[in-house]
Nucleic acid binder design. Sequence first.
DNA 1: TATGAATGAGCTTTCATTCAT
DNA 2: AATGAATGAAAGCTCATTCAT
Lengths: 191, 191, 191, 191
Amino acid sequence: MRDKSKKRQLIMEAALQVFVEHGYEKTKIIDVARTAGIGKGTVYEYFESKEALFCCILEEYCEYYKEGVRKILSDLKDTGCQEKLLSVIHMEEELKDQVHLKSLNPVQLMTEFTNFPGLKQAIQVMLKFKFDTVCEILNEGVKNGEFRSVNIPLATAALMGASSAVDLISDEIQDYTDENLLDLMIHGLKA
Amino acid sequence: MRDKSKKRQLIMEAALQVFVEHGYEKTKIIDVARTAGIGKGTVYEYFESKEALFCCILEEYCEYYKEGVRKILSDLKDTGCQEKLLSVIHMEEELKDQVHLKSLNPVQLMTEFTNFPGLKQAIQVMLKFKFDTVCEILNEGVKNGEFRSVNIPLATAALMGASSAVDLISDEIQDYTDENLLDLMIHGLKA
Amino acid sequence: MRDKSKKRQLIMEAALQVFVEHGYEKTKIIDVARTAGIGKGTVYEYFESKEALFCCILEEYCEYYKEGVRKILSDLKDTGCQEKLLSVIHMEEELKDQVHLKSLNPVQLMTEFTNFPGLKQAIQVMLKFKFDTVCEILNEGVKNGEFRSVNIPLATAALMGASSAVDLISDEIQDYTDENLLDLMIHGLKA
Amino acid sequence: MRDKSKKRQLIMEAALQVFVEHGYEKTKIIDVARTAGIGKGTVYEYFESKEALFCCILEEYCEYYKEGVRKILSDLKDTGCQEKLLSVIHMEEELKDQVHLKSLNPVQLMTEFTNFPGLKQAIQVMLKFKFDTVCEILNEGVKNGEFRSVNIPLATAALMGASSAVDLISDEIQDYTDENLLDLMIHGLKA
DNA sequence: TATGAATGAGCTTTCATTCAT
DNA sequence: AATGAATGAAAGCTCATTCAT
């Protein structure tokens, strides 16, 4: 039982690595298998299809992320919203390091999977969770006077998008820290 | 010569439409040909390969975009930077309408084409141009005291990312206008 | 148009040959292609799938058979039912020679394709036509006093089954002719 | 030794059931194992291969059938041939009920396994036995004046084929009984 | 002895690309 | 110049069989 579960995890980790490196379409099951050091058929003992494998990865990642967010926010119950936002953004970076990936950014994923209804749905669940979480924090910030009364969904999207893009373009950016980005979003460009 | 050029354009427009609708991998050359109302082989008379076709589209789009940006900025030589930024963001929206597409957003494209070296380069050219343009505007804004002295590449990435993501998540957002987004980025969240 | 149709026919003939020789499951598309002297992909230009290919063959065979039966029976409008039955049985033998096959006997096909709903239906159409045709002849024979008042569906099944099986076991049978078989079915074993 | 033999029997019964329900090709060893309530590997402890398993079933079925026929015929030593034929046909029906199967009709099997030389041979043994048995009865019937002097192998094939087909097409047949079929074969269609 | 996890040969099917017309 | 019929490499997936436990 332990072994079965471990191998499943092994495959998911190998798959994650290959998916992130080559993208969904270019990823071949045989490469996932080789990366995991197993045979092609074995992948299918654990996952019904390539799409299902991808879905499982997303779901796990999502759970992992949700869990992390919940924990952080409960730890920060009494701090300011700026700190909460920072922690949420931070957590994502840490998550990436832990699972050794370049990105599982839902904003980016949405782009790639627009045409896979099955996958798109799984991504939307993740995206929705992030969106709702950030919305809530902003809402709280507006209520307690920390933030001004902005269009919250718009601000949420902007925040998520900004942090996504910074990722993609980070080669060009000196001194990037989550703090710097958040500071910018909070204080704005205005002199 | 005229004809040759016109048919090339016809194919590119059909291809753009199909690429944007279905994504690169899911786009079949036969669908491009049918959309263009021509034979499958004809596509290959004008473009070496699917990848080359995509590249040409990007390059043309990039030129078109550059041209538009140059014109706008020369028209706005003496206005404030906020207006310039707005015009640049606006222009992208207009461009989409003109070529009837959901998106050719370079931030999104970067995601999908990370693994096509050929395509990635073309996208990066486009991305770089946008990036440099926005950087310049921000730079000017800082110099003339309109903006505070922020980390300009970071701010540029945030701005580009925000406007990209708002696109993807726009279902959730009420009252989205480029003005609202820009206002948010300029004044920040702070109360 | 002529060519397209001819190649389709070529593939169907090659496929028929391979299907009959190796059975449905053991038939590989690559073998059909090689037999037809074409590439594997070409088969799929003309038929959606292996199953569809098989279905088309059955349907064509069925049409061919129906046409033949109709013609024979209209030619024999005024002869006895025994002669009609004989002609129908004869025709099947001739058909086999014409299409160079061991058998497309529906009674046998029913056995092999019990588990392919799609294929089974096509076979049942063929079987039903034969069944109905023989039933009608027997009915007419009973009415005109040529035959006694037997259970017609039962007699039809027996007749069809007898002529099918004789085929399969024919190695063992000396002096087999359709006439002999029919004579046996008509006069019975009784001394 | 007893256990070994019992499990072997268990597997054969499970396999028989699955083979009859799904056909040879569509039968998966895992399904046989599940039906038998054992592990997949265990099947291979008792049978060399899927084909060997099928062969063993046929051989056992054949033995069983032979035994039954021998017993019946010895019991009926002094009755008429019509009764003997009826008993032989009856026995097959009973056999089916005993082993819970839709059919192991050799005429039908011959069709499916034309292309499995190994299996075909086993089937032919069975077929031959039936064939020879029926031939003998007919021979006796001709000799004792019960039947007229027909082409015996032909009549045998017809009889076997008729009873096979009636099986396959039985949905359409009202009031089917072995007696009715035999009566038809003996008295013929003639008025 | 019994197992089922692991395997990879082998299958169907897709589609970018070629090339004869 | 334009075509679309032909192609075969490549991919996802299945399942009989093996073998370590």
